[in-house]
Computed example of a mutant assay.
Amino acid sequence: MENKLQINSQTDLNIHTLRALSRCSQSIHKQELTVIKSSGLTASQFEVLEVLFHLGDLRISDIIEKILATGGNMTVVIDNLAKDGLVQQCTDLQDKRVKLIRITEKGKALMEDLLPRHLDSINAIFQALTEEEKRYLSELLNKLTRVP
């Protein structure tokens, strides 16, 4: 059986570029997760703690928006963090009907230990690029993000 689909050189280059971008993203994410997993956290748990550490108390919907997650498992992620004593729910003083998620002192201590190691990991990943290359890569990725 003969394949009748003809792929032109531009499409072939686009496919190659997409695969390279996907492989790179997976590789970087895997390297970045090494430090996070060493602390016993999942990537989602780390992201929740990081946003609470930097921004303070937030609604679950705000957390989802800030970390660009879907709401599907966020309640489970937060419940697990609460079981570990890393976050707690509290009532919003402005609107008693609203529950806020707050990082605990234990959660803050974990992040104070983990964040420097996480940042070192990110710096190690990107040391292969010059500053100019990082700026250009960021520019290109932002350009792709804006594609409809």
Rank of each mutant, 00 (worst) to 15 (best):
L93A: 11
S138C: 08
T70C: 02
V76F: 09
L55S: 11
L137H: 07
E133L: 07
A43S: 14
N123P: 04
G85N: 04
S121F: 00
Q127D: 13
L110Y: 01
D120N: 10
Q94G: 00
E105R: 06
L100T: 14
P116E: 11
K83V: 15
T70N: 12
R59L: 06
Y136P: 00
D57G: 01
G72Q: 11
R97Q: 05
E133A: 15
I103F: 07
A109P: 04
T70S: 11
S121I: 05
L100K: 08
Y136H: 14
K134S: 12
L41E: 06
I103Y: 02
G72C: 02
L68W: 02
E132F: 09
Q88V: 14
R97A: 07
Q94V: 12
L110T: 01
L81D: 03
D57S: 12
I36A: 03
E50S: 08
I78S: 04
A82R: 06
S38K: 13
I67D: 08
T34I: 13
T34C: 03
L115T: 06
G71K: 09
L86H: 04
Q127N: 12
K99E: 15
Q89H: 10
Q88Y: 02
I122F: 00
A128D: 09
R117V: 01
A128N: 07
E112F: 11
G71W: 03
P116Q: 13
M111R: 06
E112G: 05
Q88D: 13
V48Q: 06
L86Y: 08
V51H: 05
P116C: 14
L33M: 15
T91K: 04
L141V: 15
L137Q: 12
R117Y: 00
K134Y: 07
Q127T: 13
V51C: 05
G85I: 10
Q89C: 04
L114H: 02
M74E: 06
D120T: 10
I122S: 11
L140H: 03
I64R: 14
T34E: 11
V51T: 15
L110Q: 09
K96L: 08
S61K: 10
L129A: 12
E131N: 14
L86A: 07
L49N: 03
L129G: 01
V48S: 01
L114T: 01
L58I: 00
S44M: 08
K37P: 01
K106D: 15
E105C: 07
K134W: 04
K83D: 14
I60R: 14
I103E: 05
L140F: 10
D62E: 14
L137V: 00
C90Q: 08
N73I: 02
T130H: 02
L93G: 02
T130R: 09
R135Y: 09
S38P: 00
Y136L: 13
Q127M: 07
